[in-house]
Amino acid sequence: MAASVFIDGAAGTTGIEIAERLASRSEFTVIALTDDRRKDDAARAEALNDADFAILCLPDDAAIAAVGMIRNDRTRVIDASTAHRVADSWTYGFPELVGTDTVAAARFVANPGCYPTGFLALVAPLVRAGLIPTDWPYGCHAVSGYSGGGKAMIAQYENGEPAPAFRAYGLHGGHKHLPEMKAHAGLLREPLFSPAVVPAFRGMVVEVALPASAYLGSDADALRDTLAQFYAGSPIVTVKPADPDMNQLLLPETMEPWDGIDLHVFAGKRGEQARLIAVLDNLGKGASGAALQNLNVMAGLPGETGLRL
């Protein structure tokens, strides 16, 4: 029997992608509200309580309110907002890091943020292995496609309005992703985070540059080998082999939808540094793809079922 899914916030970018992709999945049936009912709290509450799974694609306050509408002990929730990513009673929905069994058993799962997905995929396994310290002032530079900025930013880039070639933001710190980056990497301080938007619809490059003093007693090859061992057998996370002839990474303007994530470790020619780089789709593994992976796992299916890999 197909499990029922209600997407609260199905008119947003992430919700639209999830709904479109669930439409072809026989394992699930989507509970849909008409446009005149999707903002009706009574209709939403009914759908939330009728569903086997609720996926929340809402602003933080609305997501918290939606969870409060659930009056049963049966509906399981995947929250794509920031609201519950460091909450004690929620499971962080990164199966590769927290364990597939942990996500499978959870009732409340917080979908990771897009930038943190790249940062944590690179840093968390190395911290756990003791190859890099917990108290280092890590810097994280990242660029994302403009779809991550929501409908207003998409309109600016696609409706003929003047749009910048490079939009740096979060210049004064305090970005909403920092608590989960710190907590789930096991760090003692928040990283120095420098996000930006570029004129590509989707796609993301996340980089953590390390001087050799951050991984004393090791080298770039050991960092790469540790990541490869940690993600061995994963159909979603790929650790790329060393390639000394690779001199650039490109983020295409028209990236195809993708739910995987590629991790690179580039060594300085004199052993003076390592550049850790994650490449992913901010709407794939960074949003809707991650939600579908978590839904699969929670429903007892292989995580990669129906993903674009």
Rank of each mutant, 00 (worst) to 15 (best):
D245N: 12
G289F: 00
D219C: 03
D225P: 01
D262K: 00
A212K: 15
L292C: 06
G271L: 08
M246W: 07
I261K: 01
G233F: 14
I261V: 15
F230V: 05
Q293R: 15
K269R: 13
E256V: 07
A232H: 05
Q248S: 13
E256G: 06
N247G: 15
L280A: 13
E272G: 15
M298G: 04
G284E: 06
V265T: 00
M246D: 09
A267P: 01
L250P: 00
I236F: 00
M246I: 10
A291F: 05
F230N: 01
Q273N: 13
F266H: 15
L251G: 00
L283R: 03
V297A: 04
G286Q: 06
D219A: 06
D281W: 05
L223A: 07
T226M: 02
E272M: 09
A220Y: 01
M246R: 15
A214T: 00
K285M: 15
M298N: 06
E253A: 14
G268C: 09
K240Q: 14
M298Q: 02
E272R: 13
G271E: 07
L276T: 09
L227R: 03
L276E: 09
A291I: 06
R270H: 11
L263R: 04
G260A: 11
H264L: 12
L292A: 03
Q273F: 11
D259C: 12
A278V: 08
L216A: 15
A274S: 12
L283Q: 11
V237T: 08
P257K: 10
I277M: 10
L251V: 09
T254W: 03
Q273S: 14
V237H: 00
G284T: 08
A290Q: 11
L280E: 03
D262L: 02
L249Q: 00
F266V: 15
A290T: 08
M246N: 09
D259K: 10
F230G: 07
L227W: 05
L216M: 10
G284W: 02
N282R: 02
L250Y: 11
A291V: 11
N282E: 13
M255L: 14
A228E: 06
G289Q: 05
L251Y: 04
L216H: 04
A290H: 01
K240R: 15
A212Y: 09
A299W: 04
V279K: 12
N296R: 06
L216Y: 01
L250I: 14
N282K: 07
L227S: 11
G289A: 05
N296W: 02
A214M: 03
G268Y: 01
D219Y: 01
G233E: 05
K269F: 11
D259L: 07
P257G: 10
S234P: 14
H264K: 01
S218C: 11
A220P: 01
E256N: 07
K240C: 13
L292R: 02
T238H: 15
M298S: 10
K240L: 13
R270K: 13
L276Q: 10
A274W: 05
K269G: 13
N282C: 14
K269H: 10
A232M: 06
L295H: 09
V279P: 02
A228Q: 08
D219P: 03
D281M: 10
A228R: 09
R224I: 08
T238V: 14
